[in-house]
Design a protein around this nucleic acid. Structure first.
Length: 413
DNA sequence: TCTGGGGTCCTAAACCGT
DNA sequence: TCTGACGGTTTAGGACCC
C-alpha cells in the first residue's frame, strides 16, 4: 500500500522502552493497517464502482479529465477506462476486483491495460486520503494516546497501559478501535497485537481484511518461523535474494543461523539485526512525535527530455520543483542547509548531487541557486526521465534567523 | 510496454583538522 | 617537518518502506 513513508524500519540505535507506569505489565504493541486504504476511500465516494475493477494511479491529470468530482450519481460512462490511458505511470492501488485480473500495485498502467482494459482508472486524490487519515487517527488517539504515525494508512499503538489493552492480549481494545474507526469513517482495518513493533507489524497482515491477530512470545516458533524471510519488515528483495542464495528461506531457518555468520555476511549492524529479528526481538519504543529530516519534490516527465534540446522546458520544471519544495518548507515551518538534486536518465540510472550551504533556507531562489550548482556537476549528455529537488538538514523555522539572500552565480538552465 | 513520488537510514569514501 | 592515527562532517549511492 503506497503512501507517505515516515521512518525506516531497519536497524537503528533503538533506545529501550522506558517502563514508566507499571513495569510488571507485559508490553502490548499494536500495529493497525487500513485495508486497501486508497481504494476503500474511493469506493466510499463512488459506491457505484463497488465490485468493479478499479485502479488508482497514473500521472496527475487536470481536474476536468476523468472522474474527479465525488458524485455517487455519476454514471459509469463518465469514468475513464484503463484502455484509453496513454503514457507513463504505475498503479498505486487496485481494488480486489481488479486484483483478480492480475493487476496490482507498482504495475505499469500500460501493462495493466492489457490485462484488464475495462478497469476504471481514478486519479490519486491525496487530499481526500489525508482527510480520512486524520479521521481514523483521531479515533485511535481517543482510545489510546500513545500512537506512532507511520504514514497515511498505518500506525503503531502502545496498548500496554490502556484500559482493555491487556484483555485477551489486546483483542478487546483492538475490537473497540476497529468499531470506532468503522463508525467514524466507514473504513475497515486490520490490527496485530504483539510484544513489540516487529511482531505486531507481521501480525496485522495475518488476517486481512478486518482481521485481529494476537501474538505472544510463545507463538514465535509456530506462527512466525514458518513465514518467508521477506515478511520481516526490513528485509527487502535484495536481502531476500542473498538469503535465498545461502539456502535461507524462512524466518525459522534464519533464526537457526549463527549470529556471527550473519554478521560476516551482512555486516555488523545488519547481520545482528537479522538475527534479532528472526528471534522476534525488538525493543523500539512507540514514538508519538518526530521531526522531518528532509523534504523533496520530484517528477517524471511525460517524455524523456534532453538538457540541451529541451533546455527551456527543463528550466521551467526545475524552477517549479524548487518553488514547490520551498512552499512545503514554508507551510510546515522548516529551513534546510543541504540542497540536493536527483536525476534519472532514460536508462533508469539515477544520480544525486548535494551541497551544504552556510545558512538554512526556505527561499525558492536560494534553493534554485544551490540546486543549479549541483546540476553543473553531473553529465547531461543522456536524456533525462526524472528530475528532483531535495532540502535536508532541516531545522524548525523558529530556530533560524532569516537573512537576506546573497547574489547568485550563473546557472545552467 | 518497462518501472511514481516522498520519505528514512546506513555505509563507504573523501576530505579536513588535530 | 614529516608521518600516522583518529575523528568529525560532507557527499553519493543503495536499500527499504508506504
Amino acid at each position: 500500500m503506497p503512501s507517505i513513508a515516515h521512518r525506516d524500519e531497519r536497524p537503528q540505535s533503538a533506545p529501550p522502552q522506558s517502563a514508566l507506569h507499571d513495569p510488571a505489565l507485559p508490553r502490548r504493541i499494536a500495529h493497525l493497517d487500513m485495508d486497501a486504504f486508497f481504494a476503500s476511500v474511493e469506493l466510499l465516494r463512488y459506491p457505484q464502482l463497488r465490485g468493479l475493477p478499479v485502479v488508482i494511479g497514473g500521472r496527475r491529470r487536470t481536474p476536468q479529465e476523468g472522474a474527479s468530482a465525488a458524485d455517487a450519481a455519476l454514471p459509469l460512462s463518465a469514468f475513464e477506462r484503463l484502455r484509453n490511458y496513454q503514457g507513463r505511470g504505475v498503479i498505486t492501488t487496485a481494488t480486489y476486483a481488479a486484483r483478480a485480473f492480475g493487476v496490482g500495485s507498482a504495475m505499469g498502467l500500460m501493462k495493466a491495460a492489457r490485462l484488464c482494459p475495462d478497469a476504471i482508472l481514478l486519479p490519486v486524490d491525496f487530499d481526500a486520503y489525508r482527510r480520512y487519515s486524520r479521521a481514523f487517527k483521531d479515533v485511535v488517539r481517543s482510545f489510546a494516546p500513545v500512537m506512532e504515525d507511520r504514514g497515511i494508512d498505518e500506525v503503531y499503538i502502545d496498548f500496554t497501559h490502556v484500559p482493555g489493552g491487556q484483555e485477551q492480549g489486546g483483542r478487546v481494545l483492538a475490537q473497540r478501535i476497529q468499531q470506532g474507526i468503522l463508525a467514524a469513517t466507514g473504513l475497515t482495518c486490520s490490527i496485530g497485537v504483539a510484544p513489540n513493533k516487529l511482531l505486531a507489524k507481521m501480525a496485522s497482515e495475518f488476517d486481512k481484511p478486518q482481521g485481529i491477530s494476537i501474538i505472544f512470545e510463545g507463538d514465535l516458533a509456530t506462527r512466525i518461523w514458518p513465514l518467508p524471510c521477506r515478511k520481516i519488515n526490513g528485509i527487502g528483495p535484495k536481502t531476500d535474494a542473498r538469503l535465498q542464495a545461502l539456502g535461507i528461506h524462512t524466518i525459522g531457518e534464519l533464526a537457526q543461523q549463527d549470529a556471527g555468520a550473519l554478521v560476516r555476511h551482512f555486516g555488523k549492524a545488519y547481520g545482528a539485526w537479522l538475527h534479532d529479528a528472526a528471534w522476534g526481538r525488538d525493543e523500539r519504543a512507540v514514538v508519538t512525535e518526530s521531526e522531518p529530516v528532509s523534504m523533496s519534490r520530484e517528477t517524471t516527465f511525460e517524455r524523456d527530455l534532453h538538457a540541451v534540446h529541451d533546455r527551456a522546458e527543463l528550466g521551467r520544471i526545475f524552477t517549479a520543483l524548487c518553488e514547490r519544495v520551498a512552499a512545503d518548507l514554508q507551510r510546515q515551518g522548516y529551513c534546510g542547509r543541504t540542497i540536493g538534486i536527483k536525476l534519472r536518465y532514460a536508462d533508469f540510472r539515477s544520480v544525486t548531487r548535494e551541497q551544504t550551504i552556510a545558512l538554512p533556507t526556505q527561499d525558492a531562489a536560494t534553493i534554485r541557486r544551490a540546486a543549479g550548482q549541483c546540476l553543473r556537476r553531473v553529465a547531461l549528455t543522456q536524456r533525462l526521465r526524472l528530475l528532483g529537488v531535495r532540502v535536508g538538514n532541516l531545522v524548525p523555522q523558529s530556530e533560524v534567523a532569516l537573512l537576506p539572500v546573497a547574489a547568485g552565480t550563473p546557472e545552467l538552465f
